[in-house]
């Protein structure tokens, strides 16, 4: 564990808590894409399939349970909670998740690290699911970014949520650089490339988020 990875995990946790805070306290999910939340639930479900078989540390298991619990409860709130669901604007959330999931699944079947980790007892299925979750996580934010461009006024909590979500993966990139130089044989091209793509997708959001913070004006993405 290094400071970049810990900071990354804490930023990721904070992003989820900000979203749960928004939904739970003001009972509103205005501006939040349900499609992105459902994709994140799939990302965690396929990433942590081996939560009970491959134990790493109390921290690791606890964080996995928090991410699984929070992502599924956010989806539940937005789908079934009688007050929250009313603030979900499905007409603005039109991105079709399958056009993201299918290519990620095909890519995971074609390109995964199974061939380099022979000694790992993990089954091929788990490896493909894990790789699928990496690719899916990289693009899962797209429905949310599309929705942000459609909803003119982005409220602060939503802006902070997306910012923290992007920042966590940027911190993970620093973690991978650190581990590459401090641990031998630490090379994970698949993880690195999908993490880089994921962070680059936030580039324009970061730009407008920084501009709104610098000029102290409301965050607005160009249509």
């Amino acid at each position: 564990m290094n400071i970049f990875r810990l900071a990354g995990d804490m930023t990721h946790l904070l992003s989820v808590l900000v979203l749960l805070l928004k939904i739970h306290t003001i009972k509103s999910c205005a501006g939040i894409s349900l499609k992105t939340q459902e994709l994140y639930a799939v990302v965690f479900a396929t990433r942590y399939l081996d939560i009970f078989t491959s134990y790493i540390s109390p921290y690791n298991t606890m964080m996995k349970l928090i991410f699984l619990g929070s992502s599924f409860s956010i989806v539940w709130y937005m789908r079934y909670h009688k007050i929250v669901r009313r603030s979900y604007d499905k007409d603005q959330d039109t991105f079709r998740p399958y056009i993201l999931m299918l290519p990620c699944l095909i890519l995971a079947l074609l390109i995964n690290e199974k061939f380099t980790f022979k000694e790992i007892s993990t089954s091929f299925f788990l490896f493909v699911m894990w790789t699928f979750s990496l690719y899916l996580e990289a693009v899962a934010i797209l429905p949310q970014l599309v929705m942000l461009q459609r909803t003119r006024n982005i409220d602060n909590l939503t802006g902070q949520y997306v910012f923290l979500l992007g920042a966590y993966r940027a911190l993970y990139i620093l973690n991978w650089i650190y581990r590459y130089f401090t641990e031998e044989h630490f090379v994970h091209w698949i993880t690195w490339i999908s993490g880089l793509v994921q962070t680059l997708l936030y580039a324009d959001f970061f730009y407008y988020y920084f501009q709104s913070w610098k000029n102290n004006v409301k965050l607005q993405l160009p249509a």
Binding site: D9, H12, R47, S54, I56, S57, N60, K64, I120
Partner: peptide, 10 residues
């Protein structure tokens, strides 16, 4: 220890 496993990250 867990650190050396490839999937030791969240």
């Amino acid at each position: 220890n867990g650190e050396s496993k490839p999937h030791d990250e969240l």
